[in-house]
Computed example of a mutant assay.
Amino acid sequence: MKKLIIGGVINAIISIVVGGGAAWGVTYYAHSNNAPVEKKSHSADKKKVDLKKSVFISMPETLITLHDKDDNDRYMLVEIVLVGDGEDKEKTDLITANEPLYQSIAVDTLSSMSYESVRKLHVSEIKDLLLASLNKVVAARNMEAPYHDLLIKKVVYQ
């Protein structure tokens, strides 16, 4: 009888230790995974743009030739929208006037990649890649960017 009681007490202690460790682990990892998300949301708050005053300018569809691992031609169709300040008519006109430049940058950026690597990218990653390329080329040309964001309206692969 004593052995049964002692065994039950030992099992209870082990259960408490294991359960407590598991609860601590879940809590620790849940809080560590939420921390970067909170930081991202705070940095996004700093970059907020009033979309009520923004204008969305669609670029014509851009066809990009990609090569797959077998060196076959594959195609990607992407439609880009640049977001400009609706209160500044000069900047919005400049976006429209520079459409060929922006399309050229998109083609140059994406066509240098393989089909497989582009297919692995999420639309948000393509957006970030194109926006970084646009900003880099515009800065290299000593121009002020007339847009403040880029959106991907459509992506089609063949």
Rank of each mutant, 00 (worst) to 15 (best):
I5K: 15
I6E: 10
G7S: 13
G8Q: 11
G8K: 11
N11Y: 13
V18C: 15
G19C: 05
G21N: 14
G21H: 08
A22P: 09
W24I: 08
G25C: 12
A30E: 14
S32P: 06
N33P: 02
N34W: 09
N34G: 11
K40Y: 13
K40M: 12
S41E: 13
S43Q: 15
K47H: 11
K47N: 08
K47E: 05
D50C: 12
K52M: 08
K53S: 08
F56I: 03
I57P: 02
S58D: 09
S58K: 06
P60E: 00
T62N: 00
I64Y: 00
H67V: 05
D68S: 04
N72P: 04
D73H: 09
R74A: 00
Y75D: 07
E79D: 12
L82M: 15
E87K: 10
K89G: 04
K89P: 04
K91S: 05
K91V: 03
T92Y: 02
L94A: 09
N98R: 02
E99R: 12
P100H: 00
Y102F: 15
Q103Y: 08
V107H: 01
D108Q: 11
M113Q: 15
S114E: 13
Y115T: 02
L121C: 02
S124V: 06
I126L: 12
D128F: 07
L129P: 01
L134M: 11
V138S: 04
V138D: 06
N142Y: 12
H148A: 07
H148D: 05
D149Y: 06
L150N: 00
K153M: 07
K153G: 05
V155I: 08
V155Y: 03
Y157S: 01
Y157Q: 03
